[in-house]
């Protein structure tokens, strides 16, 4: 319930109506949306019980590693039940054709694989918020100073997931494990996304805000 309460308000993409439709416009809209999402996700992280007790460098290391996983998991959850469309925001939904035009077809396919996985699992909102916190705590940064503290955070979130699943699905003893087993695909997809946006950044044709750039550079 704490994580449900900490879940950020929805953000709108607000594509610039003055710009003609193009791949540049689509990517500009997504990068701007991502930058604003990152600000609220950092605020969200601080509300995860135990996160703020980590040292500031360790909080930074986890976020620098997991930020794209968090962004993608939010898109995936919004897209559940939307036939083959990615809901980046309520006012910004992309189908395969639009993704292709934006040069995002590989990413579209990868994210859709996650959407299908969670659709077949019938992911609950409670499980989603817990899994998202686990993705952050499980970021596997190489720069963690206090592993014991991070492991304590992982353990408490894992316990929360198990408890939650045992209440929601008492008949299914495998469910927590099945949810955890979706995380490698999330990490793989996030790595693809970071690589893709690093290439776009190199290209220099799409304006990007500072926080988004800063986090992309953390992976460079």
């Amino acid at each position: 319930s704490h994580l449900l309460g900490a879940e950020p308000e929805k953000i709108y993409a607000m594509p610039d109506p003055a710009l003609p439709d193009s791949d540049i416009k689509a990517l500009t809209t997504l990068c701007d949306l991502a930058d604003r999402e990152l600000v609220v996700n950092i605020g969200w992280a601080k509300h995860i019980p135990g996160f703020s007790s980590l040292s500031l460098p360790d909080q930074m290391s986890l976020l620098q590693s997991a930020w794209m996983e968090i962004l993608i998991l939010r898109v995936v959850f919004r897209s559940l039940g939307c036939e083959d469309q990615l809901v980046f925001a309520e006012d910004y939904v992309m189908n395969e054709e639009q993704a292709k035009l934006a040069g995002l077809q590989d990413l579209y396919t990868a994210i859709l694989q996650l959407v299908r996985k969670y659709t077949s699992i019938k992911l609950h909102r409670e499980e989603f918020v817990t899994l998202k916190a686990i993705a952050l705590a499980n970021a596997d940064s190489m720069h963690i100073e206090d592993w014991v503290a991070v492991q304590r955070l992982q353990d408490s979130l894992h316990a929360a997931l198990q408890e939650l699943v045992s209440v929601l699905h008492p008949e299914d003893g495998q469910r927590a494990g099945r949810l955890i087993m979706t995380l490698p695909l999330l990490r793989q997809t996030a790595a693809k996304a970071v690589q893709h946006f690093c290439n776009i950044k190199q290209d220099g044709r799409v304006p990007m805000h500072k926080l988004f750039l800063e986090l992309l550079e953390a992976h460079a």
């Binding site: 600000v39 950092i42 509300h47 976020l63 926080l211």
Partner: peptide, 15 residues
């Protein structure tokens, strides 16, 4: 750490 000043600042701000 110098390179990550916005993240640093956002984490330090109380929300």
């Amino acid at each position: 750490k110098e390179k990550h000043k916005i993240l640093h600042r956002l984490l330090q701000n109380s929300t």
